[in-house]
Nucleic acid binder design. Structure first.
Lengths: 330, 330
DNA sequence: TGGGATTTGTTCGTATGTATG
DNA sequence: ACATACATACGAACAAATCCC
């Protein structure tokens, strides 16, 4: 066992990956800036394999998220977008004067830097609550909810899909603007405080990572690779008497998003610019892109100690490279 | 355009998936409890397609994480493990009397219910800090760190990989037990308070989702499917003077883990048992497994409003089902 | 223990369809 | 209309791992 490479397609895939990461392949694309791989026919002769075997290699690289093939055009290296750091904890950052950098979106999410958040028109529906929604909002299944859905763009790039749920009684009881398909500029939280006196004194977040569905793929521009995941955050907001009065579900593309939470006393520069290190510090690591875990590196999980059997599949293993996209946005 | 199904392999995949989810396939496996699909040769005749086309369908299902094929044995339905809800925010849950259910692990993570946490022997290394570590801990690159790595098991199931970093001066300055490859039962945080007087008054968490590497695949028992991801949480802990004195990196399998954060006033039952709904409530949704997003369902992102072009690939799309694993563990 | 049957993995060849330029 | 390039589909052969009698 443990032959380094029992299969041809893996050889080809590894070689292609090496050349992709060394910046070797295709000095210029056909027209745009996209890096393009040689056509399958060329690879056929280059590697002396049949087209089907070449396609096995390409299929693997596509599944792993390194390349994407488009009919009639070619196979292209996947462009990894810049990372966006989003702070979800409601830190007192906006209370501290002089730290006005960064944008809040409706008190739920904060991004550092001077970025423009644009929201799509709101889509409003009235729904009979599902069991799951009833579970989160602690109401009985069958009661009605207002659903408000928005698409969020950050600097005109797809950023997040957000859906909020409110009991229908809120609209009939004074907060009628919840039913209008228009943005509430001051934020729904502030609006509910003004109209109904609801104070949001705490929240609970649940975070999952999963494979995107078709709509999410379209919005975020994700491929079929199944290597890219999305975050789904579910926020339940509570009023002083302990009732849940808001449920907000947000979906973020995991390849370009880092979520941040602060708790207790945290230095202000970390609050305002997470993921970028000390302001005057060592220039962060913009673009150094070391392989393996961004933090622990190979030394931790590497085969020095743990990996007593650095066996077959671990070879040139691309499995350590997907997290090598550590380019910073700030 | 927009023929419902232009391709045969997709028809086969959709039909297989439907039968998988209806519990149709294989009343009993060969021996163990694993549900097994019919052999490729049988599917060949059943669907009247060539073996390669059948394999295209199976390859798709495998890539999406629904099945796994093993040479010489067969193709099996992937077993989705129970969900574990982990609370990472340092709520005052342990200060509230009478809520003693659940286990804390070193003040960093809390799981509800009466579960047994077991930790592997600690592996200790002394490392020259990488740029990334230096960035988080705000020290200059090149200084040395103590690395303490543990594997965590929950009820004897692989649960998390955890690595903590401390400046080497801590050990030479009094906290020498950091260098011993033994567990610190009271927790490193308490130990550092006793020995060095370090008080942990706040922390910052950064969360990413990525593809697991080879070691993580082995530990968590993940397949090659590339559909399963891991969470990586990076916790930086701060002392009152604002210095970062601890960096803890944890890796969790995303398919069986939900992360939770609380902020402000949150009802006690949510704090103690997140993800399970009200204690006496509507029995949650254990095992109902509705398709689509667990919360928003098809009604939100569905093609009713947004999907004006409910085109080809969206068909019986399995893309909406990966998140259908909503079984609860409690 | 052995050996044949079963089952998936790999590789080739070939042909045709579809999208792009 | 034509060439390019990827997508789909068929058939065939052998290898490798496992199962079963």
């Amino acid at each position: 066992m443990a032959r380094s490479t029992p299969v041809r397609w893996r050889d080809i895939a590894d070689d292609l990956l090496r050349r992709i990461e060394s910046g070797d392949l295709s000095p210029r694309g056909t027209s745009s800036g996209r890096r393009r791989l040689p056509p399958e026919k060329d690879l056929e002769t280059r590697y002396g394999a049949s087209r089907n075997t070449v396609r096995d290699a390409l299929s693997y690289l596509q599944q792993q998220g390194y390349v994407v093939s488009e009919q009639g055009k070619g196979t292209f290296v996947v462009h990894r977008p810049d990372i966006v750091h989003v702070t979800l904890s409601a830190a007192e950052i906006d209370l501290a004067p002089g730290l006005g950098t960064g944008e809040w979106y409706n008190r739920d999410a904060h991004v550092p830097g001077h970025r423009k958040v644009r929201v799509s028109p709101v889509r409003v529906e009235v729904q009979e609550g599902t069991k799951v929604i009833a579970r989160y909002l602690q109401t009985n299944p069958g009661s009605e909810f207002i659903l408000r859905h928005q698409e969020l763009y950050l600097d005109e790039q797809p950023w997040a899909l957000q859906t909020s749920f409110y009991p229908l009684e809120f609209a009939t009881g004074g907060a009628s603007r919840l039913l209008y398909p228009r943005d509430i500029p001051e934020g729904a939280v502030a609006y509910l405080r003004e109209t109904l006196g609801y104070e949001e004194v705490g929240f609970h977040d649940e975070i999952k990572a999963r494979v995107p569905n078709e709509q999410e793929r379209r919005f975020f521009g994700l491929g079929e690779s199944a290597a890219d995941a999305v975050f789904e955050t579910v926020r339940t907001a509570y009023s002083p008497d302990g009732t849940a009065f808001r449920l907000t579900v947000a979906v973020w593309a995991a390849d370009r998003t880092r979520l941040h939470y602060n708790d207790g006393q945290v230095p202000l520069d970390v609050l305002s610019a997470p993921g970028t290190g000390p302001p005057g510090g060592a220039d962060a690591d913009a673009g150094n892109a070391d392989a393996g875990n961004a933090v622990t590196g190979n030394a931790v999980t590497g085969n020095a100690v743990t990996g007593k059997d650095a066996d077959a599949t671990a070879k040139g293993s691309p499995s350590e490279s997907p997290s090598s996209d550590d380019a910073e946005s700030g």
